[in-house]
Amino acid sequence: MNGWILAATVELAGGGAAALWGVTTGPTGRRVIAQNLATSALCPALLLLSQGYGRPSYVDLALLLALLGPVGTLVFARLLAAELERERPSAWALTWAAAGLGAVVVAAVCAATAPGRATVKLLVVGALLIGGNVIASRALSGGFQGVRGG
């Protein structure tokens, strides 16, 4: 067991348990926020695991999660728009903390890999993850208004 896997285990246990607790309790707005933050908690864990196992091709999993996780949150933001419009949930402190965590992990994994195409891929994952989560948070706190029939 190396340091990368240990870090991934800690992040998985902490972030996963927090996301699970948030998504199963409280009003709908809080649950959607927890669903969004689950992406930003688990995507860095996948990057750390890929580095820990020494298999660069596992980065594809993190890439797909960084791409599709925020899309999933947009689905909820759009189709639960009526409920969210009343609640206007927002947790910007948590969102930026999660973004910072993602940035730190991407920087650490970048530093450990030889510069080249792998670095570019990691940076794309980081940009998609952070951008996606900030935008998804924005969408939850009133990004869709006046959704009636469409």
Binding site: L12, G16, A19, L20, V23, T24, T28, R31, V32, A34, Q35, A38, T39, L42, A45, L46, L49, Y53, R55, S57, Y58, D60, L61, L65, G69, G72, F76, L80
Partner: peptide, 25 residues
């Protein structure tokens, strides 16, 4: 059902991590 879908999507992420640590990417 809507809240169930939220929990289900988080369950999907956990399952993906489980498959990764079992070396089934």
């Amino acid at each position: 059902p809507a809240r169930q879908a939220l929990v289900l999507s988080v369950l999907g992420l956990f399952l993906a991590v489980l498959f990764t640590v079992l070396q089934a990417p």
